[in-house]
């Protein structure tokens, strides 16, 4: 039943359908990828509401990432008042 011989119009029919398929597929891909991206991001933020360590550009976050070992002030407290 499928007659795929388009001569002499093949050069018009196939590009029309081909480009249509491409564009629709691209639209779909874009929509789905964007949807997943933001869904993931939202889920991440809602599960873990504290400031993420991934945001290392902010000095406040970086400071807490260092930990007491490298921070002499905290280390001093760990050592005790005697020394």
């Amino acid at each position: 039943m499928l007659d795929l011989d388009m001569t002499p119009y093949a050069a018009f029919v196939w590009p029309a359908w081909g480009v249509s398929a491409l564009v629709l597929a691209a639209l779909t891909a874009r929509a789905v990828v964007a949807s997943r991206k933001w869904k993931r991001e939202l889920a991440r933020l809602e599960a873990d509401p504290t400031p993420e360590a991934a945001d290392t550009n902010r000095p406040q976050v970086a400071r807490s990432a260092i930990g007491p070992k490298e921070r002499p002030q905290a280390a001093q407290g760990a050592v005790g008042p005697k020394e």
Partner: peptide, 8 residues
């Protein structure tokens, strides 16, 4: 066959 283009 160009009538098939109408469908897109």
């Amino acid at each position: 066959d160009t009538v098939r283009i109408m469908f897109v």
